[in-house]
Structure formats: structure tokens, C-alpha cells
Amino acid sequence: MASKAAGAVSLIRDFAADVQALSRLVEEVEAFAGANGVEPGFAQRVSLAIDELITNIILYASRDGGPVPVHLEVHCDPAEVRVVIEHSGAAFDPFVEAPVPDTSLPLTERPIGGLGVFLVRSLMSDTRYERVGDRNRVILTRTLDG
């Protein structure tokens, strides 16, 4: 579903997040952004950021091992791409609670994992978290001017 409103084009998806659905969705977001004038480099950054955050939801927010219902919005306009990701569950602000990796450590001392949220921060212009009722909402913005 793509809709036009106030100069923005939006992709809105409600889906049961598992690794198959996520894999398809990430490719869909990249194609959607590309089809709406977002340069490939920016489209890839946005789709990777979405991939990392929903991967964490799948790995850590699944209570009984089943897919987690996730709401995703991707809004493209000529100046920026804005992403909203929502899911219900225990409050978790990834931008506060995920440890920041030390990317200067040598190979033998680098811990395995923990890169996902760091990549999201690095790839996006702005990252925000809100707790809305019983839901976690993350808002990502990627400006398209460089």
C-alpha cells in the first residue's frame, strides 16, 4: 500500500515479524525508497537500519518464540525519509539501553555481536524512542542532503 499525502509517499505495513517476513520487507523498503526518488545509498542505509531494529525485536522481544506483531511506516519526501517502528511489549529504549561498542578494539578483544543499534545510530540522521501506552515506538529520520 503506497499513499500520497502532503507531498510524502508512504509505505505502511503491519506484519508478524519473523526472519522470512523481515527478509522480504527489507527488500521491499529498499525498492520502495528507490522507486520514490531516494538515491540507492540512502535507500540501503534506511533498509539496513530497519533490518537491524526489527532483527532485535525478533531476537529479544518474542515472548513465546512466535512472531511479534510489528507496525512499520516509511515516509519518503524529497528532503528526508522518516521511519516509524512500533511493537507492544516490555519498555525498551534501544538507544539508551544497548551498549555502545568500542570500534577501536583489536580483533582479539572485539566482542561478538552488539553492532546492530550502533549501525542504526550511525546510518540515520536522527533516532528517537517513545513509550506510547504499552507500545515501543522508534522514529528514525534520514535527511537526504549528504
Binding site: 527489507v26 540501503q44 580483533l107 582479539t108 561478538i112 546492530g116 549501525l119
Partner: peptide, 19 residues
């Protein structure tokens, strides 16, 4: 064409193993 942090994790494990 694409790699995310779960794939990069595998490269780190491989590099440590070979080291």
C-alpha cells in the same frame, strides 16, 4: 549485495578462529 550485523558477526567469529 547485502550484509547486516548478523552476517558481520559470522565474519568476526571466522577471523578470530583463523587468528
Amino acid at each position: 549485495d547485502y550484509i547486516n550485523s548478523t552476517g558481520m558477526r559470522v565474519l568476526l567469529i571466522l577471523a578470530k578462529t583463523l587468528s
